[in-house]
């Protein structure tokens, strides 16, 4: 479960988080279930924040080499 969550995309995580907020508003949930789902929500929020923190700036460009093989190189936009 935990690893599955870490591999989640940001969208999935935040979507699940929104779902959880909706679900926890539902009064039919037992207290145990609420606590469980609350913990899941907090974990997801942490994952979302972590994903934002971990994102790395990278601007690269696809270069076509000989034999049409493609390579990735850093891209520096030319100044005008």
């Amino acid at each position: 479960m935990a690893t599955r969550k870490k591999n989640m995309k940001f969208e999935e995580a935040i979507q699940r988080l929104e779902e959880i907020v909706n679900v926890i508003e539902d009064d039919s949930l037992s207290l145990e279930e609420s606590i469980k789902i609350f913990q899941e929500g907090m974990e997801l929020a942490a994952i979302c924040n972590k994903k934002l923190d971990e994102a790395e700036r990278r601007i690269s460009v696809i270069m076509k080499g000989e034999n049409n093989n493609l390579t990735e190189e850093d891209f520096i936009p030319e100044e005008e």
Binding site: I14, L17, E18, I20, V21, I24, E25, L29, L31, S34, I35, F38, G41, M42, A45, C48, N49, L52
Partner: peptide, 17 residues
């Protein structure tokens, strides 16, 4: 957005309690 979801979650749980 994340923070407001977090606090909504927290508020909901505490009010539930």
């Amino acid at each position: 957005k994340i923070e407001s979801l977090k606090s909504a979650l927290y508020m909901n749980l505490t009010s539930k309690f």
